[in-house]
Nucleic acid binder design. Structure first.
Length: 475
DNA sequence: ATGTAC
């Protein structure tokens, strides 16, 4: 990105001054290296988002951002329904409520090392992974609708996990306002056999070691100690969310024109929040959020079943579950006035600070866990929200972000070679797709450490722990 | 991300 077009606010905050149709500034967080490495298209897309009706304060961009469909991935934008604000399917993304959950095992690295190969094989055979994978669970009719209304709470009622899990999931495991009647039959049909499946691409289940603690006191509250083993799952709403995204991106284009909204880019298709299609999208998108929450709940239970075979005395406790592709109604104080806003986070994690009423009591002293997935080789990070200044409506980054296209990665690496190199470093990869592994080679990703350091310096969240992968089941 | 094109 050409930094000469930006105003540098401080070490890690850069501003695109409003010009042309922009209603608010664009704010990009990141150190100079990250900003320079970003495509100019990120700045262009940010300026486009800043021109949408009803946008409040600014169009925000996280340090791991790259250009996406309409909105940048790593973008945050909030809209006020009372000022003509819009909702945009492109502002949420195709994989609605894609997210990350981390479970504590109470095990230490040597205990897991002893069974690492067998554990990897067992996870691989119990966690459905890859394009079009199936778990054996089928849902249709009223049961599908119950899942779409109930999310992880539905999954718990059906026997996947316990009620204590729900407090540790955003929205307490169940997104209000979901309306399965707004979800097309085609979207439901695609999901019929996909509950409890990981999917493909950058989705994974990892067994990880807590390698470094940046804040041992906060880590202790989260239940993390150096040398502990945790399980992290990254996946979303599978075919259902994708179908909803596809349909509403298509249908919001004429709707925007009818509402008299000028779109600088047709990929920014959106509709007024209080319009028939805006409300239908919200009903469908919230159903997809529940689908993703239920999916991660079921996958977490599959992991519990596998671990119970190896370690019957070590139940897995849910640390937290975050979604990073959502539009949620939240109250934020803007210019001294609390306002009810529709906050779009696309490739961005909610990062509420300490004392926030939506956090479970056990976490209110430290802030919301922010779970950041890295690559297979470099590991992941756990941060907590600070709430300080309510920056970017209390949001933070979501991952490392690709540094190289899938195509370029395929030309550079062979999947088998990536698996062998990681095995030498004690990281066992299991995947149905060696092509997928090559595409996901650690070298194809940005340096996640640099991303989270930038997020911390920008005051979006603060680092608590770095996790190193031991086993990765890759979709 | 995605029954990797309807």
């Amino acid at each position: 990105m050409d930094t000469s077009r930006l105003t540098r606010i401080d070490e890690t905050s850069w501003q695109i001054e409003p010009s042309g149709a922009m209603r608010v500034p664009g704010i990009i967080y990141g150190d100079e290296t990250l900003i320079r490495a970003m495509d100019d298209k990120v700045a262009e897309q940010t300026a486009n988002v800043a021109s949408l009706p009803g946008i409040v304060k600014g169009a925000y961009v996280m340090p791991d951002a790259h250009w996406g469909y309409g909105f940048p991935i790593g973008g945050v934008a909030a809209f006020d329904p009372n000022e003509g604000g819009v909702v945009s399917a492109g502002g949420v993304g195709f994989d609605v409520s894609c997210g990350v959950r981390t479970l504590l095992t109470g095990l230490t690295v040597p205990e897991v090392r002893r069974v690492q190969e067998r554990l990897a094989d067992a996870l691989m055979s119990s966690i459905p992974a890859g394009v079009g994978s199936h778990s054996g669970i089928t849902l249709q009719g009223r049961e599908m609708d119950a899942m779409l209304r109930g999310g992880a709470a539905w999954a718990v009622e059906k026997g996947w996990g316990g009620a204590e899990d729900l407090a540790r999931i955003e929205e307490r495991g169940r997104m209000e306002g979901a309306d399965p009647d707004c979800v097309s039959e085609r979207a439901k049909k695609r999901q019929r056999r996909e509950m409890g499946t990981l999917g493909s691409g950058n989705h994974y289940l990892e067994v990880q070691a807590v390698e470094t603690l940046y804040d041992p006191d906060t880590a202790a509250v989260l239940g993390l100690a150096e040398g502990d083993v945790v399980v992290t799952i990254h996946c979303g709403s599978r075919g259902l969310g994708h179908q909803i995204g596809t349909e509403f991106l298509r249908d919001m284009l004429p709707a925007a024109a009818e509402a008299g909204i000028h779109l600088p880019d047709r990929e920014l298709a959106c509709a007024p929040i209080h319009s028939p299609i805006g409300e239908r999208y919200l009903g469908a998108m919230r159903s997809a959020i529940n689908c993703a929450l239920a999916n991660r709940q079921i996958l977490g239970e599959f992991a519990r079943e596998v671990f119970a075979r190896f370690f019957p005395d070590h139940p897995l406790d849910l640390l937290y579950d975050v979604s990073h592709n959502t539009c949620k109604v939240e109250t934020h104080t803007v210019d001294g006035r609390p306002r009810r806003l529709f906050v779009h986070r696309k490739g961005a994690t909610r990062a509420f600070g300490p004392a926030h009423a939506d956090l479970p009591e056990a976490l209110r002293g430290v802030g919301q866990p922010v779970l950041i997935g890295g690559s297979m080789g470099t590991g992941s990070h756990i941060l907590v929200g600070t709430g300080a200044g309510d920056k970017a409506f209390s949001s933070a980054c979501h991952g490392a972000g690709r540094a190289m296209s899938r195509r370029a990665a395929l030309k550079r690496w062979r999947g088998r070679q990536v698996v062998d190199e990681l095995a030498e470093r004690g990281i066992l990869i299991r995947s149905p797709s060696m092509r997928g592994v090559a595409e996901e080679a650690p070298g194809a990703y940005k340096d996640v450490d640099q991303v989270v350091i930038a997020a911390e310096r920008a005051g979006l969240a603060r680092r608590v722990a770095h996790l190193r992968p031991l086993i990765c089941v890759k979709g």
